[in-house]
Design a protein around this nucleic acid. Structure first.
Length: 177
DNA sequence: AGATTGATAAGG
DNA sequence: CTTATCAATCTT
């Protein structure tokens, strides 16, 4: 039986939750009904010291949401085209988040948000209490492997090469190379 | 390999 | 105000 992920769970460090969230269900309620997709790929962004994290240059209008409570949605427009969806994690006041990079059926951060009708309108949504967007655990536990993060060449080498990307080891899931 | 697309953040 | 940059995707 699936149960909704709560504040306490989502307030754990992103470094831990990035791996934990792989295999969980991302749920979206729209006027057409409920969608549920299993999370297959994530990335961890952790703290101002992580030069790949949007908060690395301090708190700004955009990144202030990263400093909020665990369980808040952080959605922003990338390259002017794609909405990217993150789950803010950790204690309030510390900037960290888990980027959802892929779900079963959609192998890219911009593709899954399009499929699930997630856009910046959902930025700041509290997934602990929201009726539109939330996370569930149905007990499924895939095996997970780690890899380097993608698309962050601008980061310093120590953070560019860190293994903060987590991918479910599923035969039917093939992430973009 | 190249085009696309617009919000964001830094600089003048 | 102006400009460079970007946690990507699709087409050639």
């Amino acid at each position: 039986m699936a149960k909704r992920l709560g504040r306490k769970y989502l307030s754990q460090p992103a470094t831990l939750l990035a791996k934990e969230l792989v295999g969980k269900l991302l749920c979206r309620q729209t006027e057409n009904g409920v969608m549920r997709y299993r999370i297959m790929e994530t990335e961890c962004y952790y703290g101002e010291e992580d030069t790949a994290c949007h908060a690395s240059r301090g708190k700004t209008e955009r990144t202030s949401i990263l400093y909020g409570k665990g369980g808040i949605a952080y959605v922003y427009l990338c390259y002017g085209i794609h909405s990217l969806f993150n789950v803010v994690t950790g204690p309030e006041g510390h900037p960290e988040a888990v980027l959802i990079r892929g779900v079963l059926g959609y192998n890219g951060p911009g593709k899954l948000t399009k499929a699930m009708a997630i856009d910046k309108e959902l930025n700041g949504e509290d997934m602990v209490s929201s009726a539109r967007l939330w996370l569930e655990d149905d007990g499924y536990k895939p095996s997970v492997r780690a890899d380097k993060r993608v698309g962050i060449d601008y980061a310093t080498p120590e953070y560019r090469d860190i293994l903060w990307r987590y991918i479910a080891d599923e035969v039917e899931y093939r992430p973009v190379k």
